[in-house]
Write a protein that binds this DNA or RNA. Sequence first.
DNA 1: CTGAAAGCGCTTACAG
DNA 2: CTGAAAGCGCTTACAG
Lengths: 339, 339
Amino acid sequence: MSTAEHGKSTSGITMRDVAKAAGVSVATVSHVVNNKPGARIGDDARRRVQETVTELGYRPNALAKTLSEGTSRFIGLVADAIATTPFAGQIIHGAQDEAWKHGYVLLVANTDGNTAAEDEAIAMMLEHQVRGILYSTWYHREIVVPEALHQTDSVLVDCFADGSGLPAVVPDEEQGGRTATEELLAAGHRRIAFINTTTPSPAQSGRLAGYRSALELAGITFDESLVFAAAPEQEGGYAAAPRIIDSTATAVFCHNDRVAMGLYDGLREQGLRIPDDIAVIGFDNQDVIAAHLRPPLSTVALPHYELGAAGVRLLLGLDPATATDPLKVACPLIQRQSI
Amino acid sequence: MSTAEHGKSTSGITMRDVAKAAGVSVATVSHVVNNKPGARIGDDARRRVQETVTELGYRPNALAKTLSEGTSRFIGLVADAIATTPFAGQIIHGAQDEAWKHGYVLLVANTDGNTAAEDEAIAMMLEHQVRGILYSTWYHREIVVPEALHQTDSVLVDCFADGSGLPAVVPDEEQGGRTATEELLAAGHRRIAFINTTTPSPAQSGRLAGYRSALELAGITFDESLVFAAAPEQEGGYAAAPRIIDSTATAVFCHNDRVAMGLYDGLREQGLRIPDDIAVIGFDNQDVIAAHLRPPLSTVALPHYELGAAGVRLLLGLDPATATDPLKVACPLIQRQSI
DNA sequence: CTGAAAGCGCTTACAG
DNA sequence: CTGAAAGCGCTTACAG
């Protein structure tokens, strides 16, 4: 007796079919299907429509709905590097959960940081009448805003552009740096090294500022000779090990988890044990790494999920958009066994 | 003189506006905008329309177009774990590149492997009239197909369901295992250990089969005592180190890169050097890990990008769908310095 | 070569 | 309480 045995047929039954089968008008069907508040529909008609809907397996055409309502339920998310770290995935995840919560769906596009792909992606989203666009980067940085982004509501996620007028949401690098340092301080360390990145960035300056402010708060004089520069990956951390050892620091705050991973190797080669001989804390809480080093790495998490979620909240006007400055999301401490 | 100074206005000008401004009918505008083959439009009218389009900054409404054409340009991609490894990101990346190439855009949904979220995601996609759905998992496994997937064209990516009738595309685990083993063989090793996962899966059986067949091809008798079981992560690899050393193997093929990473630590603790004392090869080519171990890890790559791309090709009927068996994508060798 | 008109599947005043 | 009708922005035969 089932009507839908054709295999594929999203195309199948329309509201008109339901109306006819239920013996009512499409207006009535529309009202009950959407549960319109103002609609006074008789219990009888309502029931008949509902039965018919499930009987026929009716599925509303969201596109037609959008067209007649004039307001879409798409949110576009353009990302520059969806495939190299889980970071973009976490932003997408957070954005999607929040979007769904409000009845929106995500249209995503990867651009590989390529301007042409970016323009194409934005154009495509505009043509699909997106409610707005989330423009995201896989690491916190300043960007120049693609012109087309101004043609709809947009928010920058994990990046910012001073003077662009676009709302932005970024991680609180300084608080993160402070948190990491304070954790080392709390364990009794006074001579704390900091392996910073060689790459100029908000992370570079912010985490350093946090490190300094934590020391200051603890009444420890900042010692420039305890700050080292290293490429922000395993190789950099490994290469920094001898310098760390020379510095006689008892603890080290690494610019990120990959640096910490390399440092682990370097320290171990010199016979040092973590945390007994020297404590280490990272940054990022990078998935397949941090929890699986030996010992598991204490670190500060980059709140990518939350960045994505906050981005859609800003876009939908659910959170008050901070007028000029980017919204800063806290980087929480993740305690493991390296301290 | 520009007409679009309102900040946001995706909503702005319609085809009708263009028609009026250009002094032609909307039919004519439609024809030139879409460059319809059959359309005989005067050079003059065509030029006027084109000028008006750029002048007004007209952007076609893709939703309206879909509605009247009756055929959508969406492809849905449901993923079970977008946020934990870069794997899903790579599938998305490949799927998107291929989809765009054919004029389609990607609607993505993360489900966290949760059935309710899955059903909701599929329903949402169906309501958006997707051309079809790619159902993907972050590691190769057998799944039970959500009922709703049969309501449209679907293809399974990185997973399969025997007897479901759905086309599927998966990595060629056996070839991968053979390739890894052959690489060790080629370096002169005869006594090769294999650390397999404890988790029953296509990877477990496939990579083992590949290992065996490579040995066989090389005229080496399979030695059960050289196959070890370990949890498929760093901890498992680390714990396996003593057993590996006892086995007197000169080379080891690890079930994945994370296992190799743990094994590195375990071996190093016993004073063994890689590759001088013992050669190691991994599997997965996992992003932030493989290239950054010391020494950089030779491995076999999981072709996630290609899985995503092949998935949309299958969906669009561009590749001949293999009738019953999943389509197998090769796992390429990645040579680095651990052999 | 070009336009008037119907139709895609829905929503929304407006009547009754 | 319910339906007829116009409209959302486009496409596509069909006339001329």
